[in-house]
Amino acid sequence: MTTVAEAQHAPSINHGAAFKMGNNILDKWGCSAAQKQAILGIPKSSFHRYQKDASTVFLSSDQLERLSYLANIHQALRMVFSNPDNVYGYMGMVNHNPYFNGRTPLSIISTGNFGALYEVFKRIDSMRSGQW
């Protein structure tokens, strides 16, 4: 079994590329810098340093997992919608389904709460199989 420390230093994980991928997705969702920092769990100073120089990026296992959820949400949206406006706009749309209760998915994950990110992912992922 791989320890967290080993996984963080594994050469197969390109932290800079992972950060760029997540930052690009969040850009397309229309996130502010503050929202990105909360969603990714990255302090303001580190976030701005990472944006300037991807070679300085070092992410914790929590941050890598957050990025994984973002990538999976994005992939699920791409599978559900063919229209780019929906793929990228969905996260900012008011949703009246259970759990969202008139909130946008983006407002929920912008709290920075890891559990909220998981719950939003779970509900968006369920749309792929028509469970909604």
Rank of each mutant, 00 (worst) to 15 (best):
G30K: 04
C31A: 14
C31E: 08
C31Q: 04
C31M: 02
S32N: 01
S32V: 00
S32A: 04
A33T: 12
A33C: 01
A33H: 11
A33Q: 08
A34R: 12
Q35E: 14
Q35C: 00
Q35N: 03
K36Q: 07
K36I: 01
K36Y: 03
K36S: 06
K36F: 03
Q37E: 14
Q37P: 00
A38G: 01
A38I: 00
I39G: 10
G41S: 03
I42D: 04
I42S: 06
I42F: 09
P43S: 12
P43R: 14
S45D: 11
S46A: 13
S46C: 03
S46P: 00
S46L: 13
F47I: 06
F47S: 02
F47G: 01
F47M: 02
H48Q: 08
H48T: 07
H48K: 05
H48P: 00
R49L: 13
Y50A: 05
Y50K: 06
Q51D: 02
K52R: 15
D53A: 14
D53Y: 04
A54N: 11
A54I: 13
A54K: 06
A54T: 09
S55Y: 05
S55N: 06
S55R: 12
S55W: 05
T56K: 15
T56E: 14
V57F: 10
V57A: 09
V57L: 07
V57I: 10
V57G: 05
F58K: 15
F58I: 10
L59W: 10
L59R: 06
L59T: 12
S60N: 08
S60I: 10
S60V: 10
S61R: 06
S61E: 14
S61Q: 11
D62A: 13
Q63S: 08
Q63Y: 09
Q63M: 10
Q63I: 09
Q63G: 11
L64V: 08
L64D: 09
E65M: 14
R66H: 09
R66P: 09
R66N: 08
R66S: 12
R66V: 11
L67M: 15
S68Q: 11
S68K: 13
Y69C: 01
Y69K: 09
L70T: 07
L70Y: 08
A71T: 11
A71P: 00
N72G: 06
N72S: 15
N72Q: 15
I73Y: 03
I73H: 02
